[in-house]
Design a protein around this nucleic acid. Structure first.
Lengths: 199, 199, 199, 199
DNA sequence: TATTAATCGAGACGGTACGTCGCGTCTTACC
DNA sequence: GGTAAGACGCGACGTACCGTCTCGATTAATA
């Protein structure tokens, strides 16, 4: 099926790979995604264009790898469980708000979310590598709360997490509002209001 | 101060305007947003490039106008109010799901959502022209329900609507799940669970 | 038959055409034919690459036109006919030797002769536009001499001219010897020796 | 002083050398000189690129060696001397015409002649290895004829040979005419007309 | 006959130029 | 003055080769 002879990954230059990531991330911050070019990345990385084309199919793929490589370092270690569900959710979501408000983070993340909208393949990878892990820790925390009786049985935890995270992401992506601590708190409280078991 | 002499809109060719919209919408469906070009639109519309550049600043703006022109025909007339809030929300959201599942609708809408992520100006227009009107009718319906005592007082209705619509949009945009009637119903039920007044 | 829509020559930019010629001729002198590039010409001429590709199929064609445009100014006005055939031939051939020894002339001419060897189409144009006119004046002069009885009847004048001009060109092209006045004189004398009528 | 460590010729792979020659000659016939590439030769020869770069400085040099190796087999053994100078010259020149009309011979020879025009170094080697030996046998034959009194004393034999061979080569290289037996005969007769001693 | 150092096939690398596409501007002729 | 048409300067695309380089794996002179 593969008609392009796959290059030999064992001979790949680690130095070039890193330089490409650095160049891609810094450039996307400086000029924006639309004006980000493969030539620009290659030139800043001190690398031949072919070295990029050899290993990635598109600038979106480069950026996704670059961004992922930078993010992977926070190995996600699950949400805190202090027993106070609302407090736990608020604390983590506030931290996420800080991150989403950080300009360095914004440019590549926005670019990838946007590119994903028009490229199904990319979108799947984006979700699987960047969104899914973050979502799962919420799912687990809610599941634990459900077992502890803090969340009503029978509730679809997955949907509950969407109710929490999607408004947050959407606000940010569409710029329909600021991601303030107040907003986060309001959102968590309203979501939890719907999850609590009835007396 | 305006150094670009504003064109005289009264002499504008309506035939060209329409042809450009048709060309833009059909092309974005055929080749996708990334491969949609001004030259392509002009050529299919049988129009000079300058005629496009004279009236729009970018291909995104053309597409936004084209799409809006097509959508404006459903003049939004408010949500039904049968007295059964859950039923009203489900019925409208199911209809929206059908719309979002329609391929003709998808390509331009995805394209615009994506383009907005990297273009703040465009994003504001997109939200104001396409998303805000749809959101408002939900806000009004919930406000009415709140006054009728079906929704707890003190709840931020705006946030409540986000909890309903964002998971829906997000699923679709990121392709994290299908927009089925089941999903819609589950979502409405779970959101309403949190809105109901406590005994 | 023409599958490429021919561009509209009436809208062609004369200024660009000239700038391209100048750039091509100066560059071929500076860097040689092999390192002459379309990009280089475009860049020096202050012209887009496409403007070159629109009007010429190859760098050889550009150079041929550029060179021809420069040469066409000497409208060939026939060989002198002083009655002394040997003197006439020597004087013109000496002038040609001077020309061939001029570095400005050499680079493009060599390049074109070489490119023609591998490109039949180009070769025909090169011969027709640059070599044939020069050859014809010799043919005419010899024909006149033949009618005057200075050259034996029955001699193939065309072949006679080749005997005169080819050794000259060949020496130059292959660098097998210098084009001195002595050489020219020897050559003319030896050729004429074979042309004279027998007693 | 030599900063490039000279490779050790004694360990050289004869099999590779031959494969490179075969590949170069067949490729130049198939795709022409301009599209002949080192990578293409290496690939067809089943050889690493470095093996070519180790032993030759350019594709022209490879081709020259390849062609020379093929040609060297006819060890030139002097022109026949039957006593009839015209007949001797015609017979050899007719054979040469056949050779120049052979497609297998044409591609590399044309390519080398052309490459030589723009590369003085190559040109000297080309002349010395391929043209000079062929020329010398004519010079010797004419010298013999001169001593036998068939050619006038005092004639520059070298120039006489040029008068014979250059028109021939030039015709072929520039495609200004066919190399027929008739042409050869005419040429020989006209040249000899000029060489014969006067009564 | 085993050692060992250079050559070998392979192909990744930093580059340059290719020929094409589309941008946004400008010019021309028409209506 | 708006329009269809399209040439222009420009910049990026994705590809092809350049000549250099680094890898084991032969492989042929020497120990």
């Amino acid at each position: 099926m593969a008609n392009k002879a796959a290059p030999d990954a064992s001979r790949r230059s680690e130095r070039s790979r890193r330089a490409i990531f650095d160049a891609a991330l810094s450039l996307v911050g400086e000029v924006g995604y639309d004006k980000l070019t493969i030539e620009g990345i290659a030139s800043r990385a001190g690398v031949g264009k072919q070295t990029i084309y050899r290993w990635w199919p598109s600038k979106a793929a480069v950026l996704l790898d670059a961004f992922t490589a930078g993010v992977d370092e926070y190995s996600t270690q699950g949400l805190p469980d202090t027993g106070d569900l609302a407090a736990d959710l608020k604390s983590v979501l506030r931290a996420t708000a800080d991150e989403f408000n950080d300009p360095v983070f914004q440019a590549p993340y926005r670019a990838l979310a946007a590119a994903g909208a028009n490229d199904e393949e990319l979108s799947r990878t984006f979700v699987a590598r960047l969104m899914e892990p973050g979502t799962l820790v919420y799912v687990e925390r809610l599941r634990a709360a459900q077992e502890a009786g803090e969340v009503a049985a029978g509730i679809d935890v997955r949907v509950a997490v969407e109710m929490l995270l999607s408004p947050f992401s959407q606000r940010w992506l569409m710029r329909t509002g600021e991601l303030t601590y107040d907003y986060v708190d309001t959102l968590v409280d309203l979501v939890l209001r719907g999850l609590r078991p009835r007396d």
